[in-house]
């Protein structure tokens, strides 16, 4: 998985690059002579510019699509199944379809399947590690069950925050579980 910091750097570098190029273009205009011909050979340059961007996107697609969460551990049997029920404004984690009020402990390094449902409105099942970095998520939608498979490599306390706006106490809707 690519992490947040990598994505931030990719973004910042691309943003600065765009800004620098356009500032250079702007300055070239200020310094241009009255009869300056502008960009030479624009058709050729245009072709290379478009081809380059197109190739870049195709490569990105080829690299990223197979990493989509729908295919993660798809052909494995989960070691544990956790039933998650979200409602305004709490989460319930259970090993059966019935509600449970016991603390949830899960094994590290094994495939866990979360079956996420909602009793009322849309919620988001956002899983954060103990440093409060978002590690994975799925939505909780009324009438549907979203199955999220995940392997937790790091033991520790994981926090669940609601990641779909669900009303006035959305920001205090949370829960947690332990991985050991």
């Amino acid at each position: 998985m690519t992490d947040h910091k990598t994505l931030l750097w990719i973004f910042l570098i691309a943003a600065v690059l765009i800004a620098v190029i356009f500032i250079a273009v702007y300055r070239s205009s200020l310094q241009a002579a009255e009869d300056s011909p502008g960009l030479e050979n624009p058709k050729r340059k245009r072709f290379f510019f478009f081809a380059l961007l197109f190739a870049l996107l195709v490569i990105l697609l080829a690299v990223t699509l197979p990493k989509s969460p729908y295919y993660m551990h798809a052909d494995e049997t989960p070691a544990e199944v956790v039933y998650v029920r979200a409602e305004q404004y709490s989460f319930n984690l259970s090993r059966t379809e019935e509600l449970s009020y016991d603390d949830m402990e899960l094994p590290a390094g094994k495939v866990i399947e979360f079956r996420v449902r909602s009793k009322d409105v849309n919620h988001g099942f956002g899983v954060y590690n103990d440093k409060y970095e978002l590690v994975t998520q799925t939505q909780a939608m009324p009438g549907y069950v979203n199955r999220l498979r995940w392997v937790f490599d790091e033991p520790g306390t994981y926090h669940i925050l609601c990641l779909e706006y669900c009303g006035m106490s959305h920001h205090i809707m949370s829960s947690s579980f332990t991985v050991n």
Binding site: M1, L60, L65, G126, L134
Partner: peptide, 12 residues
């Protein structure tokens, strides 16, 4: 809009 990134960016 890249699915494999969206899982850690969606609704942040």
């Amino acid at each position: 809009s890249t699915i494999s990134n969206n899982i850690i960016l969606h609704n942040t």
